[in-house]
Computed example of a mutant assay.
Amino acid sequence: MSVSALREKVRFISGGAECVAWHYPGTNQACVIMAAGGAVTKEPGTDPFARRFHEAGFSVLAFDYRHLGESGGHPRQVVPIGEQLDDWQAAIAHAATLPEVDPAGLAIWGFSLSGGHVFPVAARNPHLAAAIAQTPLADGPTATRAAARHQKPLAALRMTGRALLDAVGQLMGLRPLLVPLAGEPGTVALLTTPDSIDGDRALNPDNAYPEWQQTVAARTALSLTFYRPGRHASRIACPLLVLVCDQDQSALPEPAADVAGRAPHGELVRMPGGHYEPFLDGYERAVDAELAFLYRHLPTGHAG
């Protein structure tokens, strides 16, 4: 059966704008709410894992943040962290209204930047049954310093200048200055870490998602530099699975592992590879670990 036959498009409102999501109706009354990494749309960023969760009986609600993909909101290709956290709240509220879903069986899943968002969202929603953070950005300042070692000085200055110009342009109501999500060292891109350039191969094999615009507002670099979602670890009441890759040079494994250690019900899974390994050769290992976690902690358990 094709993926399109398994899911339907739904919409909900966040901050006065429309968010668009894929709803996969499940059979076991539990629901996994999903969002992709920074400026990654719902299809390349969630399809492989959403399909497997759905095959296991879970409902899935996989959404685009405002300003990205099929969701509304202007300007486009911006990643305002506060708004994205609000979009999570709207998505959780919408998932609880789905006809086949028991509101006591809601879980959240995110990777990369959205994996970092999982921490404050879980802390804010103690009623959640479970949360999964896959290769999450847990500490922006630490990740930014580490990533700078993989960029050439002149390109770093050009990127900083573009980010500052974009931030000033935002105040003046100008269109965002866009940069690629990833690039080789010496290019102006959000990330130039060695594993960042695996993103297209991992998420968009054979150009399966040609509509995914792999750019983002340059100002994003400034907001990520100060974002420390891991500080919410001690307030996460639900079971939390943190999956890290030991050679992750984009989000870094140790700050995320520290969150798992400090969360009251944290669990840590480590695997070899870089930032996108769970979408590459490590996919089966990652999805198996996440399904086992969902089976253990969602109140409806294994449907099969």
Rank of each mutant, 00 (worst) to 15 (best):
V101N: 04
L68N: 13
A56G: 14
V40K: 02
G169V: 11
L178T: 00
P255H: 11
F63M: 05
I108K: 02
T215V: 15
L190F: 04
A36K: 02
L137A: 12
D248F: 09
G140M: 11
P99L: 10
A155G: 12
L68W: 07
H275M: 05
P103G: 00
A129M: 04
A233Y: 01
R228F: 01
A143L: 04
V259K: 01
A36I: 03
E284H: 14
G26F: 01
D198N: 06
G186C: 03
V20Q: 04
A131G: 00
H265M: 09
L241M: 09
N204Y: 06
V287T: 03
P103D: 07
G273I: 12
P99K: 11
C31E: 00
Y227W: 15
R52D: 15
I108G: 00
S250G: 03
Q214P: 15
Q77L: 07
V287H: 02
A148C: 13
I92G: 03
L165M: 15
P44N: 05
V20S: 02
G37V: 01
L224A: 07
L154T: 13
R285E: 13
G282S: 06
R262W: 04
P103T: 06
L294G: 04
S14R: 07
Q170S: 08
V188Y: 00
D87H: 08
A39I: 06
R76L: 09
D139I: 02
A39C: 02
G105H: 04
A21H: 02
G161C: 11
T300I: 10
G266R: 02
M34K: 08
A156L: 15
P239M: 04
L222I: 14
T300A: 15
A143P: 08
P120V: 00
F53L: 05
R51G: 10
P141I: 13
L68P: 13
G199A: 13
L222A: 11
G266H: 02
G115T: 00
M271Y: 04
V179A: 01
E8C: 10
G161I: 10
I132N: 05
F226D: 09
F58R: 05
A39G: 02
G186L: 02
T135S: 09
D64P: 14
Q77P: 07
E254A: 10
G230M: 01
L294E: 06
H117S: 00
P229K: 01
A218T: 14
T225L: 14
Y276G: 06
L294V: 06
G82T: 08
T300L: 13
A133N: 03
E43V: 08
A50L: 09
A146R: 10
E290R: 08
R149W: 14
T144V: 14
A91D: 00
Q29K: 14
R231E: 10
P255K: 06
S4V: 13
E267V: 13
Y276V: 03
